[in-house]
Computed example of a mutant assay.
Amino acid sequence: IEDFFQCFQISCQGATSITTFVVFLCDKIEPALSRAVFERTARDIAEDMKNKFPDFKSNRANLEVCILRYLAEQENFEYFKQYLTSPKQFFQSYIERRVKSHCLDGSSRLRMFLESSLESLYGNILSAVSLSTQIVKDKKDREDKISLWLDEFCGELAEVINLPRSELKGIEHQEVTDIEFLSSAMAKSLIDLRDRLIKELADADMSSFSRQPHTILAEHFSGCWQQCPFCGAVCTNTMQNHDGDHQLVFHRPQALTGFKWYGTDHFVIDICSSSVASDCSFRFHDYQPWTPYRTYRNAGPPVSTWRILPDSSMQAYWKWFVSHFRTQLEALYSQKFQGKGEIPYAWHRITKQEALSELERC
Rank of each mutant, 00 (worst) to 15 (best):
E2P: 05
F4P: 02
F4L: 15
F5R: 11
F5Q: 10
I10M: 12
A15M: 13
I18K: 04
F21C: 13
D27T: 07
D27W: 03
I29C: 02
E30Y: 05
L33M: 11
F38D: 08
T41R: 02
T41W: 05
A46P: 01
E47Y: 02
E47A: 15
K52D: 08
L68M: 07
N76F: 03
Q89G: 05
S93R: 12
R111M: 08
L114Y: 04
S120R: 10
S127V: 12
S132V: 06
D141E: 12
S147L: 08
W149D: 03
L150G: 06
E152V: 15
V160I: 11
G170W: 03
G170S: 08
G170V: 03
G170E: 07
I171N: 11
Q174I: 01
Q174V: 08
V176I: 15
L182G: 04
S183L: 06
S183M: 09
A185S: 15
L190M: 13
L190Y: 10
L193N: 14
R194F: 03
I198K: 14
L201C: 13
L201V: 12
A202W: 13
S207W: 08
S208P: 11
S208E: 11
A218R: 01
A218M: 08
C224K: 07
Q226I: 02
A233V: 13
D245N: 15
Q247K: 06
L248P: 04
R252M: 03
P253T: 01
F259M: 10
F259Y: 11
F259A: 14
K260D: 04
K260C: 11
T264C: 10
V268K: 05
S274A: 15
S274W: 05
S275Q: 11
F282K: 02
Y287E: 13
Q288W: 10
P292E: 01
A299W: 00
P302H: 00
T305E: 10
D311S: 09
S313A: 15
W320R: 02
V322K: 04
F325H: 01
F325R: 04
Q335H: 14
K336S: 12
K336W: 09
F337L: 01
Q338E: 14
I350M: 08
E354Q: 13
L359C: 02
R361C: 05
